[in-house]
Design a binder for these strands. Structure first.
Lengths: 270, 270
DNA sequence: GGACGTTACTTTACGCCGTAAGGAGTCGCA
DNA sequence: TGCGACTCCTTACGGCGTAAAGTAACGTCC
């Protein structure tokens, strides 16, 4: 868990929306700056992508730029604000508006899939606390896209606003599951079916009466084993390990349920 | 953001399931222990509840028990494992099985509400990474309850498994939103409608062309203002501030959509 | 009953972290 | 030619998790 999100909101806002003084045209006094906010944010994002949030430190970012940690403080007020900037910067990758296809369901499905991949690409984003929503331009743009897509359902604004608050966390949660599955696979090395097998074996050793204590869970696991996964690129592509496949399937089913629910709301109130 | 969840799985597991050596009946050699795993976990949970995850440190927990940080290491391998123990300990508060009422929808609604309140009571739980699922007895019990409730829908095991993976994150996400709203309210002091007003005012100052850049979001905000909130206890109870009310309403609507989706799945496949 | 081994807990220390304070060098402009 | 603004560095402080080693309390066995 990483906290973050406690920087000065005003300072963060003006940095996020690039409302600072424009870069002086002919250079002011003092040595020419060899760094920039953008360069720092890019380095920090690369670091977080590669090594995870746990390795993100001011010293590490400085190292990556051939500079000391303190050099960053010329450009950025502190680590919290840097995190805000990183957060918004990657959100530029969120899907944008497409021409209205007329099929809101297909559009939302495609949107959710792309957002899922975005989070999986930058799993550290999921660890940035939402506590203080310093919304930057790119996250707002992503929000705007979703709202536009939802408009096509014809539902009223009140419900729409709540659907936004449901869909984004849903995709975040699904992405978390996928990212966690990858992390577990990388940590154990045994990135295959045996992962789950090993875990439940250890548990059964420690808790012999597991099945009696948790009958519903046990029954569920016993009943429906893994179905074949209809993934794209069955040839050549490396196989998706079991837990991740499971997480992605959960995403697919959950999204289907949500969209069915939206459909029901449309029918009920039209 | 707090990371956690990197302790030795085997050690965590045996601690979680209390598979350690039973407490010696007549005391062994050495001074009598004046602490215990349970006491440490309880102190740590109390600390996290009161001061938040950011204030949770080995030294702080030790202080609370009148002991040094290092004293804890006699009972607990490290901070990660302590976090695992805390995590499972609070999950004892999750709702348990109720006699089957025959109305799966009402039962699931009640369940979701109780789980939401649980997370709101212990918001730090939401910051514990799910990356390495060291499932303890109490979380398993909570899982078992949900599975039992879902069984009543009559859906097949495969779908059921995915619904579990959808519902839990949904409630977590909703709770996160409520907790964040409270945090923001506490931080700004202005815990009322003006919170949002102040934020959008600052934004409009920095970004005058906001409405043109994000037409859909702007339109949404303009259209549906806050509806009256049909909360229980309109008399006497302190008023729920606006952002939290909004978060709770999102939870209500989102849950409704999900349950509608489940309903549709039932009808479609029966 | 006294020595011994085991155990609970403390003290000290190391290497991280974010960042405050102050100094060194570089440049535009008067 | 300085002056002042500016970037970047070094040093330092108080926090963190925890390794290592020391101290004191206790049950057990000679």
């Amino acid at each position: 868990m990483v906290f973050a999100g406690q920087g000065d909101p005003r300072r963060s806002l003006s940095l996020l929306w690039r409302a600072d003084a424009p870069p002086p045209t002919r250079g002011g006094p003092g040595p020419r700056p060899r760094l920039s906010v953008d360069a720092i944010v890019a380095a920090a994002v690369a670091l977080a992508d590669e090594e995870g949030m746990g390795s993100l430190s001011m010293r590490a970012v400085g190292d990556r730029l051939g500079r000391t940690a303190m050099a960053l403080y010329t450009y950025v007020p502190g680590k919290s604000e840097l995190l805000d900037l990183m957060y918004d910067a990657v959100h530029a990758e969120l899907p944008g508006h497409e021409p209205d296809s007329g099929d809101w369901r297909a559009a939302l499905t495609a949107w959710a899939g792309e957002v899922l991949e975005f989070y999986v690409r930058h799993p550290w984003v999921l660890q940035v606390s939402q506590a203080r929503p310093v919304l930057g331009p790119h996250e707002y743009a992503g929000l705007d896209t979703l709202v536009t897509l939802l408009r096509a359902t014809g539902l009223e604004a009140g419900v729409l606003r709540r659907l936004v608050g449901t869909l984004f966390p849903f995709v975040r949660g699904s992405a978390q599951a996928v990212a966690d599955a990858r992390l577990a696979a990388a940590a154990t090395g045994s990135s295959d079916e045996e992962w789950w097998a090993a875990r439940s074996a250890a548990l059964l050793e420690l808790v012999p009466d597991f099945a009696e204590r948790f009958p519903a869970v046990s029954g569920l696991e016993a009943e429906g084993p893994a179905e074949p996964y209809p993934g794209e690129g069955t040839e050549g592509a490396e196989p998706v390990p079991y837990p991740e496949r499971e997480a992605r399937e959960t995403f697919r089913v959950g999204l289907g349920v949500l969209l069915d629910g939206i459909e029901a709301a449309r029918v009920g109130r039209t």
